[in-house]
Nucleic acid binder design. Structure first.
Lengths: 214, 214
DNA sequence: TAGATTGTTAATCGATTAACAATC
DNA sequence: TAGATTGTTAATCGATTAACAATC
């Protein structure tokens, strides 16, 4: 598993492989060839083999891939063999939605704290956490060995809070705020820009409609 | 604005351009060169010019780009000059979060209905809508000229409901369920796979940590 | 052993970057 | 007009696909 320089394109495909392999596992299918998987997933068999071989050989010539083994290896590559401790900053609808999504917990993502600047929310119980004021962030983060901060706050606040959290030692951010965070380069940010996604949808809608006219 | 075969890579960058141009507008900046924009956005000036020229010339030699004009043109390309009527299927935390996010409304996305299969939620007021039972979908969709269905329901339900909605004539789906919907090819699906995103984050965290060890 | 399918190299395709002529 | 910067062509780089030898 020596990841020299794996391209973003490959990495982006890994979770999708994992999802399909999970479904195969659930169906008690033991082996699969790149050909079969390619038909299922609508990609080329060549790409599948290339992708996997970025991380070493997971298959067996003449046989294919063992579903369980491949699943576990990809999970490992994605870091899902470790547990991660998260805090949610912003206890609005979106923060609560993420907190309550049980599938994350099953994958080893432990939500350990939730914070908001709105004092009306202080003490509100969300799943098994109580909303805490932002002033508690520093103490909490340092005490609880937090890996990931989930930012579900408006963009202005996100910039400010991210800067603070970086100084408290939080290295990874799942950012839902509609802005590009400026952080030192050993810090990881994964953006979920929902409005960008919605605009891609309307782009395609618009293009489809104008095609019909022609 | 003749979009022959614009690559996905280009389209994916458009919303980000729009965001930066919006900020420039807000700062009352009237003109910008591809060079200046490239520094701001951390991409090459060449890419910016290539991207824009996919849709025709928006700039002026020797001068640069007029921020307002460029902003409007990109908004148009993305289909933001039209209003879109959406329904939300799934009135859980995530559905509610999206319904309440005001910025969508400002962009011309009108949430006109919200549905759930849980009868305890029927009639619950979310923003200015009342949660309706799934049985109302067909009637509502046909009456209200719905462009986009937002699917914030579990994957099993999503597959079933999407199939129904397709038959009712809904052409575009913003899918938050953790599954790839199988739909006819004139139907548009934009996926938001949150767990994929979170896994990309843990991949990078893991890689960063193991790099440090070496 | 023969058949199947991987792992891997080579060929192709597409996207990004560089360069520069056109022109405001 | 001279300077600046686009629009666009050409060069480079990287990712995907095809092909096939290795091997289970």
């Amino acid at each position: 598993m020596d990841d020299k320089n794996i391209s973003q394109a490959v990495i982006s495909r890994l979770p999708r492989y994992l999802r399909y392999l999970g479904e195969l596992k659930d169906s008690n299918i033991e082996r699969i060839s790149s050909q079969e998987l390619s038909e299922l997933m609508n990609v080329t068999a060549s790409q599948i083999r290339q992708d996997f071989n970025n991380f070493g050989g997971f298959g067996q010539q003449g046989y294919g891939y063992k579903v369980n083994y491949l699943y576990d290896e990809i999970a490992k590559i994605l870091g899902l063999n470790k547990t991660h401790h998260l805090i949610i900053v912003g206890a609005g609808n979106l923060g609560q939605a993420l907190a309550n999504y049980m599938n994350f917990e099953r994958r080893g993502f432990h939500f350990t704290g939730i914070f908001d600047s709105n004092e009306k929310l202080y003490g509100k119980k969300i799943r098994d956490m109580y909303v805490q004021p932002m002033e508690e962030l520093e103490h909490f983060v340092k005490e609880n060995d937090i890996d990931i901060a989930v930012l579900t706050i408006p963009k202005g606040a996100a910039v400010k809070i991210a800067e603070q959290l970086v100084s408290y030692g939080v290295k990874a951010y799942w950012n839902f705020a509609h802005i590009d965070l400026k952080v030192p380069k050993d810090i990881v940010v994964e953006n979920v820009h929902l409005s960008d996604s919605l605009m891609r949808l309307t782009y395609t809608i618009t293009r489809n409609e104008s095609e019909k006219e022609n």
